[in-house]
Design a binder for these strands. Structure first.
Lengths: 165, 165
DNA sequence: TTGGAGTGTCAACAAGGCTGACTTATCCTG
DNA sequence: CAGGATAAGTCAGCCTTGTTGACACTCCAA
């Protein structure tokens, strides 16, 4: 109790507090990816495959270009990942019904199985963290994360959210 | 006890909420690393250099083994990064005073300059996010992140925290 | 019918993870 | 004091996943 009340209320903006936030973000992200990474490695896939599978599941029928802008990688990079997923029968690429230049991406049954396995692992950890922290902490967690995104990324995040809300 | 008002309070644990959390984490981490990544690229360094510099600044005199366990990479991987930092005069490696097998790592003046530049960029974004979300949101943010870490990682995170508290 | 958009492919390269094997120097213990 | 354990560094090679650049194909619309 040796600090004045006004310094208390701004304490969350001190360099020390910010540094703690930076490190928390770093270590938490490791935990966040650890479980799916383990599963992926067993099957000879990487994080890039996870991301592609996640967002195809999330928005079935999405085009390659859509996926590119969501993932923020080059088409060559995505294509390499996509090709192995298609070859392995996890993803199906259908010619667009309106515009035949476009390819619409869907998970196959096998792809859905993998998606569920990965998501469940990641969700379990998220659920534990949410449970431990409680609802109001979760609200704060989401608020800070959303404020941390780039402008254009946040727009995509919110567009994604709207699509199934 | 199915759809009573009490189930409202558990809404933050629905699959939909958890999925939003997962995607928020993914997009926010991109924002989190975007600014330092830009600076690093200009200077021909990568994220791995940033991490090394950050934790050497954080715990001056840390040994290579310490750094290894904090960063969670192999010594070969760390060594590649550390070697360039030492060659470029950003990091100094001193023989341990007690145990001469150990190397103690310090930032040079130039290293500190880079560290400050990187940290300031990252901290600016964190500060904006904190400011936008407010103190109680920040508390929740940290709670969830800490709950998301692996057990052993959390111990290291807390040990780091204690060191300068 | 021609230009542009969307897509895909080839080649080459870099960062930064990994494993395995080995050396050197030092420390500690029996 | 000898020998094993420990800390660090190094070499070689592999993988994933990101990058550029160049180029071809298909299809749509002006």
């Amino acid at each position: 109790m040796n600090e004045t009340p006004s310094s208390q209320s701004l304490l969350f903006l001190t360099d020390e507090q910010l540094r703690k936030g930076i490190e928390a973000m770093f270590f938490a992200y490791r935990g966040f990816t650890a479980d799916p990474d383990r599963i992926l490695q067993e099957k000879g896939y990487g994080r890039a495959h996870h991301r592609a599978v996640h967002f195809i599941h999330r928005s079935p029928g999405t085009t390659v270009n859509n996926l590119l802008s969501i993932l923020g990688v080059t088409k060559q990079s995505l294509n390499r990942v996509l090709r192995t997923l298609i070859e392995d029968g996890l993803v199906e690429s259908r010619v667009g019904p309106e515009d035949k230049r476009e390819r619409h991406l869907y998970l196959t049954e096998a792809g859905s199985v993998l998606e569920r396995e990965l998501t469940e692992a990641q969700r379990d950890r998220m659920r534990m963290a949410y449970k431990a922290a409680g609802p109001s902490a979760v609200a704060g967690f989401r608020q800070v994360l959303e404020a941390m995104m780039d402008e254009d990324i946040r727009r995509q995040y919110e567009a994604l959210r709207d699509k199934t809300t």
